[in-house]
């Protein structure tokens, strides 16, 4: 069988979703670490964060890894949603009475929906912070790294933006509540010995990382509106 055929079976597609999903999990750790610098009690507000952001923005290696990130994200979204839509067609006549939550968790059945919510948030998020800066870097000769710290404060001043960001984090939390374990199971690593610890780490990860992310817009909203 060719490589292409290996990855087009149901398990093969899952391997692609799982590999890219776990890669995105790694990305979240880095992203969260860098952004958490906004909480640093600098004398000059946001100094630590601005330096870290400038390092990430100006670094060629990071820019190259970013291409990998976007490719991975694209594969994850395309394969994930295609699996999801195919799976919806496997039972043309639905049950009149279904088991609901008696035999499985709602979020494990809603990965496509949660992923789509994350995607909608992601488009807004890239539009806010990534696109303008990177567009300038690519096309504007007079470009210099934006002052992202103050830009964030400006973006998060209206409450509705904060609410959307928090909802994005909530969707991410539920996506990971299933996705973290699921990714390891897809690679056959959730064995009798390890599945308990993988589930526990997954739950902790799914709560802690989105919580840290969600606290950023809330914090910066306060900074913007109360002036400290």
């Amino acid at each position: 069988m060719s490589w292409k055929n290996y990855f087009s079976t149901s398990i093969g597609k899952k391997i692609l979703v799982g590999a890219t999903g776990l890669f995105l999990v790694l990305f979240l750790v880095v992203h969260c670490y860098v952004n958490a610098m906004v909480f640093w009690p600098d004398a000059e507000p946001g100094k630590h964060f601005t330096e870290a952001a400038a390092f990430m923005g100006g670094n060629v290696a990071v820019r190259i890894m970013e291409i990998g990130l976007f490719l991975g994200l694209a594969v994850h979204i395309i394969q994930g949603l295609s699996l999801w839509s195919q799976n919806m067609k496997r039972r043309s006549v639905r049950y009149t009475v279904s088991a609901g939550n008696a035999t499985s968790k709602w979020y494990s059945r809603s990965m496509g929906l949660l992923g789509t919510l994350i995607l909608m948030f992601l488009i807004l998020h890239l539009y806010h912070f990534w696109a303008p800066n990177r567009y300038g870097q690519a096309f504007d000769p007079a470009w210099k790294e934006e002052d992202l710290y103050h830009k964030m404060i400006a973006v998060f001043t209206p409450l509705w933006v904060v609410i959307i960001y928090v909802l994005g984090c909530v969707s991410l939390a539920w996506h990971l509540m299933h996705g973290f374990f699921s990714g390891f199971q897809t690679f056959g690593l959730a064995t009798h010995k390890y599945k308990g610890v993988i589930r526990s780490i997954g739950v902790a990860f799914a709560i802690i990382i989105p919580l840290i992310f969600a606290s950023m817009p809330i914090y910066l909203h306060c900074v913007g509106n109360c002036g400290h």
Binding site: S10, K14, R90, A99, S104, Q185, G188
Partner: peptide
């Protein structure tokens, strides 16, 4: 369909087959 590790199978299997087998 393809497996998305939901686990309803394991909950309903009359023989208690575990999804460790799927792993």
């Amino acid at each position: 369909g393809s497996c998305t590790n939901i686990g309803a199978c394991e909950a309903e299997c009359p023989k208690g087959i575990s999804i460790e087998n799927i792993a």
